[in-house]
Design a protein around this nucleic acid. Sequence first.
DNA 1: GTCTATAAAGGGATAGAC
DNA 2: GTCTATCCCTTTATAGAC
Lengths: 217, 217
Amino acid sequence: MAGSAFDMNRAEETAQSPKRLAIVDAATKLFLSQGFGAVSVDAIAAKAQVSKPTVYSHFENKEALFSGVMTGVCERAGGQEACPLANEEAARYMPMNELLQKTGEHVLGVITSPEAIEIFRVVIGEAERFPQLGRNFFEFGPASILEMIGGYISKKSNSGELVVDDPAKAAHYLVGMMVFPVQMGLACGARDPVSKDEISEIVADALKTFMKIYAPR
Amino acid sequence: MAGSAFDMNRAEETAQSPKRLAIVDAATKLFLSQGFGAVSVDAIAAKAQVSKPTVYSHFENKEALFSGVMTGVCERAGGQEACPLANEEAARYMPMNELLQKTGEHVLGVITSPEAIEIFRVVIGEAERFPQLGRNFFEFGPASILEMIGGYISKKSNSGELVVDDPAKAAHYLVGMMVFPVQMGLACGARDPVSKDEISEIVADALKTFMKIYAPR
DNA sequence: GTCTATAAAGGGATAGAC
DNA sequence: GTCTATCCCTTTATAGAC
């Protein structure tokens, strides 16, 4: 019908070709769950309900498809918008301890989510073959988190609420205390997923320790 | 010659078949540098200067070869014997700060070595397909390190040199401060290798912070 | 145990019709 | 852009001689 063709054109305008989206979607799920080598282009085409040449009409080869998919995934995975620290009003008026607690819970929640662990595994596992992907992940992930928290710590040091001579290092200590060894255990499949309650407890403990180091006395 | 046949028999007795060793050696290097999927049995046979059926006469299939190789690598990689804390005399008589510094330098040196990063990448990348490998790595790696340091901290808490209510947590804070984000940066290929001097500095800083938290006042 | 040779399957990628 | 059909190569794994 003419109607459906019209809809298709609309879809292409707003969100590119629907088949391309189906390919990207299928490739994302397969690559994240099995890595680069274990996934065939046949499998991607089948899952996207598309033929193999259609895949190759949108992406030059398997590597390009993988790179494209994973780059997008890394950039979206941070969830920076939802982080309490990203809200300027909150960052100014919420009590420091509460804001750091909420930020820690957000960060740890993102990092320990099953999706993030899948991304972590694939990126680390393929960092040799796709060096740019590893660097990209590091920038959008850990580096970005550290920068955000370091900036806040720096402000609080200037205002006298904390006594810190190296805000970047303080941020890395705080994050290090929170994520180690939980992230490692998850990535190794050596522990069960982390519950909300456990996350709150981990963050509260780390924060208490953090304050022992940096609170003015 | 009869002599060489005799040597071969000797070698088999002391260290199994030399061809098997060549296979394991070649497979180790290839798997660690390229992961499971990117390495073919042909490549392993060629590097070991052996024919493919010889590989299959020693290992049931590629998975078994990979598992065997990686398990051995993980168990040997800890280098527990060389750790200052493993020396009971040193652990008793060396001053605490010096011993923790040396232990930290050893641990961080092992963890950030190119070989360890290779192992880390491969294990994490294949943890989905080889779950036992991931758990094995975690036990022989991070868990073992934490246990060792936690035990020492516990002793020093009993003797009054430290004030610690949860030695395991204190150990994980200390190690977390040391390894994050260095290990992550290396695994992502987002930073250069760590020099001896830098390791000493990282450990010294973390230790200073650790003492701020746990030293008796 | 070790080789040469080969089977059997699956992989990435493309030609050509529509 | 999309499909059917296919090419060609590599891969894992084995048969059979020595």
